[in-house]
Design a protein around this nucleic acid. Structure first.
Length: 483
RNA sequence: UCCUCCUUAGCUCAGUUGGUUAGAGCAUCUGACUGUUAAUCAGAGGGUCGUUGGUUCAAGUCCAACAGGGGGAGCCA
């Protein structure tokens, strides 16, 4: 019978009055041949198990090593020591699994995140990753809760897709053809007619186009699933496999879209603040300690909890691409020629140093940029009509978060068939490949909008982890797919 | 992919202008102690200095290539 155990988080919330309980967990440290710090993953707080002198045999004591797993039954009593509220006086200890202390790589000391990344299968057993992944869970749960409360339908869009016309980046091919002897057609090209699906297929880079099909039937839908990009990106904010949330809403314009995105982000942050306070406090302390080693000008002005509170209470700054260019052009930063990439004028794509200046120096809070030049955005974004002469824009919006950069990318979609077709022809996307997508514009088209939120970037923002590889359990990056 | 920095014990890191036997803290092991808090005290074991090649009488130290990792950039979420 294992299910009689009580979780340590629950136990620590009780008043110790000699109750008999059973706990199970893993040893963090064993001090003085007498005190076991036991952790079961429910919280970073360890339960102090007290082994009375002489109550257990030498053989058993020797097996109480770091990360050995055990079942302990005993009485909880107020602790005589100072560091904790209660002790579990062990009446019976059963080692469930031994752990060779000489080989076990985690020690009761600080480890670098880089080292822990190399033992990603064990890093959940540390306080930092325990907190990160409990917060990750809370955010994922809050996302479903938010959309469910708003009446959105959770839609599972395909992982394997045949369209490569979405233009969202390099794709991973999905194939069962033999690598060493790929069948060829008359022209000498690989003959995908003989492949599993009878055509070339890839892992999805976005569920958006399929999401629009759902939105034009259910009204509001969202997706939350894995996404794959075969880009050779080596940064602290890119993964080859990541999770993305993509709501898509009929009868929404760009402003509705921005309102939803802002409300959504605040909602899930608030959920984590209310339900994972201890973990966030731990992560805030961790970040503060880490930043102590940085030079003054590289440190954040606000602590993690302050930052999250600020985001909940202050809303996001909204401004158009055109205004953003002006602000930066007029900034002292630009006049002093401190940008590596100078602001050349309207139409240029924003470099990440420009985004960072705007978010971290000028406004010091999340910023929503909207109405971007059409030339630097995707084909499906709605073409604005009231543009300045020679400056065509689309109803796109990006949310930029301090320290992370782009966390949301979205737009109102082009619902007018002829405009959409014209744009596709203009940039060379074959209409016949997306016939099913265009059908939504043929049969009862409606104004609609949506966005994509990078889940790992959101987790980074909330946990303060600076490398995206530390907020996903098993990161996939170029040259790296262990575990 | 580009720029840049790093790679010395299980971990974190010292190692002087190139010079004889490469060090520390923590961890591990052995013993002591027993209300500890990353316990403490004493002792012990633990190294192909990332790999390969080069310069030199002599390379952990200088040079090159490669590998792995960090930071930044591009692409983006």
């Amino acid at each position: 019978m294992f299910n009689k155990r009580i979780r340590i988080k629950e136990l620590l919330a009780m008043e110790p009055q000699g109750q008999e309980v059973t706990v199970m967990g893993w040893v963090r440290t064993f001090r003085n041949n007498q005190f076991i710090a036991l952790n079961d993953g429910s919280t970073n707080n360890n339960l102090q198990v007290v082994v009375e002198l002489g109550s257990q045999g030498e053989e058993l004591l020797k097996r109480i090593t770091t990360s050995a797993s055990m079942k302990v039954t005993g009485m909880i009593v107020p602790s005589l020591g100072k560091g904790q509220k209660m002790d579990l006086k062990a009446a019976h200890i059963e080692i469930l699994g031994d752990s060779d202390a000489e080989k076990y790589p985690l020690q009761p000391k600080k480890h670098s995140l880089e080292f822990l990344r190399e033992i990603a299968h064990l890093r959940f057993r540390t306080n930092t990753f325990g907190s990160v992944f409990r917060v990750r869970h809370a955010l994922a749960f809050a996302i479903h809760k938010f959309f469910n409360e708003k009446g959105f339908v959770y839609m599972h869009t395909p992982i394997i897709t045949a369209s490569d016309a979405e233009g969202a980046g390099e794709m991973f091919r999905v194939s069962t053809l033999p690598f060493d002897q790929t069948p060829r057609n008359d022209k000498g090209e690989v003959d995908f007619k003989q492949d599993f699906f009878g055509r070339a297929t890839n892992l999805t880079v976005s569920g958006q186009l399929e999401g629009e099909l759902g939105a034009t039937a259910f009204g509001e839908i969202y997706t939350f699933g894995p996404t794959f990009r075969a880009e050779n990106s080596n940064t602290a904010r890119h993964l080859a496999e990541f999770w993305m949330i993509e709501p898509e809403m009929a009868f929404y314009d760009l402003e509705d879209n921005m309102n939803l995105a802002e409300e959504f982000i605040q909602y899930i942050i608030r959920y984590a603040m209310e339900n994972n306070r201890e973990d966030l406090e731990f992560l805030a302390q961790r970040l503060a300690d880490e930043e102590k080693q940085l030079p003054q000008d590289k440190r954040s002005e606000m602590g993690l909890l302050e930052k999250l509170d600020f985001v909940l209470n202050n809303g996001f700054e909204r401004l158009t691409y055109t205004d953003a260019i002006e602000i930066r052009k007029e900034s002292n930063h630009n006049k002093k020629k401190k940008f590596q990439y100078p602001i050349t004028g309207w139409g240029m794509d924003l470099q990440s140093e420009h985004e960072r200046y705007l978010v971290e120096k000028h406004f010091k809070k999340p910023v929503i940029l909207y109405n971007y030049p059409a030339a630097i955005k995707a084909f499906y974004m709605r073409q604005n009509e009231d543009c300045a002469p020679g400056q065509p824009t689309v109803a796109a919006m990006d949310i930029l978060a301090p320290g992370i950069g782009e966390i949301v990318g979205g737009s109102q979609r082009e619902e007018r068939l002829s405009k959409l077709e014209d744009r596709m022809k203009e940039i060379g996307i074959p209409l016949e490949e997306l016939w099913w997508y265009l059908d939504t514009r043929r049969y009862g088209t409606v104004p609609h909008a949506g966005f994509g939120l990078g889940f790992e970037r959101m987790v980074q923002f909330v946990t303060g982890m600076t490398n995206i590889r530390d907020v996903i359990a098993f990161p996939r990056t170029p040259g790296s797919a262990e575990f």
